[in-house]
Design a protein around this nucleic acid. Structure first.
Lengths: 208, 208, 208, 208
DNA sequence: CATGAATGAGCCTTCATTCAT
DNA sequence: CATGAATGAAGGCTCATTCAT
């Protein structure tokens, strides 16, 4: 296991090698799943020897954590609400829905599926996911929604349940897509607009 | 592997033994997860020998399928929209939300978590889940929602996306609860009412 | 790992299999040493599969412990001072010297060499050896020697050091023989008489 | 592997580096044992890189040989019968017993334990030990003892067995001490006097 | 049908050793 | 000469599955 070297060039090399290994692991995991994948598979994919992996990662589980962190960093980079205008209610909501929907779709979805499976099963990973992704997102959005309530721009609903419902939709749709729903697959790009309307206006007819 | 005997008493015994094994497996899986559980664990829990399990199930994977089918049957029994009055828009929606929320919660949630993990990873199981649970539910609700549209009681939105969004909420909230969200855990019973309102009326303020 | 069955026939079979494995292990250990020997080597020698060994022994180390216990039982059977006449000073001393010298020589010496090496290195085994072999022997002999002192048949020396010295001779000679000393090898059978005289009368000339 | 340089300064440096490595190895071996110690452990202890060790030693086994030689040199330095007065029978015997007892005790005993374990298992080391330590000592003492016999100061016993018995006592007591005998541990310093008397005068009472 | 001992393929991991820089 | 990243062989151990009793 390589400890971060003070030497910046060394650090660069180490980071590069770690990324190389993680990329290989991510690829093979996405194809075969976590458990069916052997260290040899990953090493072969990365073009290195089995043992080399253990210079950079404690064990197989650490690879998954590494991938998780990489993905989290990437998603966090892509999903960034701080640049949004909180006064633009519709725009904010649209972005709030659209960004995760895009981030966890497409080429990332296979890997996310595998990670999600392990999240379901691995307590560490589960807590990590909750504390580092779900909870921060909810915490970030809460004051913004609260302001809208104060401004009477949205109904004075319970914010915590509301936020969980909205993020739940996103989550649930990603899951349904993972399950193989072809309708969602085909019309993924319509979802942000559609959901924004649905959430804002509801399903019910205006006429009583 | 037991081939279905014509003898009804035999069949009874076989079914009982299968259930005994499946219950044991479900218990141990829920505690330890699928992969960490060994056949010996299950046999011990069921009070039988390892080999006996193979008289009733092809292999370890078949146990999970069996559990899945059992759970599906139970959920299907509990979640039954056919007895609902389709003219009671609010009541139907409430039940549509409430029933799965109850069915997959509580003492079943640990096992569901484990099965979900395998669903994510096992194509067979995934397709089975989609074809036998998700898709039928959507198919069942679609004409009912369509009728409401025709009656102008709900907005003429795209039904397929609408249904996926609504079931997505349910799915997503179960997931967030599995992730360990204590808010949802504590206020699980408020969800049906809350969600029914939210879905019907939306988040937006009435005042433009 | 097989737990002792209440069924006496089962117990017989289990004991037989354990012995079979232990004998195979002893043979290969004696030839190649403990560490260089693989589980596969032992399994092959025993004519069984690798995994079978783990039905009967926790791990490789348990094999060594098992061999150690077997050898201890055998040596204890052979080295038995309780049948000796404690009034026969010379006879007792002769037997006290002779028995271990015979027991740990010949076909047993190769295995003893290997076990001794692990004793040197493995704290558990070391304590086991001390508590189960060395100490009991010393404790057994002490009252007998004390009686001789009381009877003024031997000098009133410190009994504990005396006993350790005598057993030390035995131990040391076995070691020197293990080291490959050909003189000892060739004249092993002279040792009991020779040592009995030496210990009783000492080296010094009678004439001052 | 460094070939001896003709340059004396080079040779000095090489010797120093070898000693540095050997000291580090000795320390770690004494703490963890030979097999459990990795080259990395030793390199870390010595404050150098893994690879550097291989410039000075063929392989891991050579480190043990090197330590063995170092220890042998040190012991040989400390245990030196040539300066003793061979006419002082008691004094010589006392020193003959005392010196090894001191040399292989105290801070050296842990390392000796480890080396002894490898001696038991490694034929090369075993022969080296016998030929370079045990046999020379015996050979050295033999003429001296023979002279005493000629002078009728000791009994005309078989010298070869006598010497082996005496060195066996020393050897055996060191072993018993290694085994964890607390009596010996506590009274180690009494041994030389005690043993000298015992060996010279024997255990038997003077009165017939 | 029930049993559970036996099987053996296969995986993670370690670590002595090498060698390009 | 020093470095330490890379290598890859090897081994202990697990466990799903089989099958003789």
């Amino acid at each position: 296991m390589v400890t971060p070297a003070p030497d910046p060039i060394q650090a660069q090399l180490i980071a590069a090698r770690r990324t190389q290994i993680l990329d290989a692991a991510a690829k093979v995991f996405a194809e075969k799943g976590f458990h069916p994948t052997t260290i040899k598979d990953i090493a072969k994919e990365a073009g290195i020897a089995d043992g080399t992996i253990y210079h950079y990662f404690e064990n197989k589980g650490a690879l998954l954590l590494g991938i998780f962190d990489h993905m989290r960093a990437a998603v966090t980079r892509e999903v960034n609400f701080t640049t949004l205008d909180p006064d633009d209610l519709r725009g904010f909501l649209h972005a709030f829905i659209s960004q995760p929907l895009q981030a966890l779709h497409a080429d990332r979805s296979e890997l996310f599926r595998i990670i999600l499976a392990e999240i379901m099963v691995n307590r560490d990973l589960r807590e990590r996911y909750y504390q580092q992704m779900l909870e921060p997102t909810l915490a970030l959005a809460e004051p913004i929604f609260a302001r809208w309530v104060a401004q009477r721009r949205i109904k004075p609903l319970d914010m915590r349940l509301t936020l969980r419902a909205i993020s739940g939709i996103i989550f649930g749709l990603i899951l349904e897509s993972i399950m193989g729903d072809t309708t969602l697959e085909a019309r993924w790009d319509e979802l942000p607009d559609f959901l924004t309307d649905l959430i804002l206006n509801g399903l019910g007819s205006d006429q009583p």
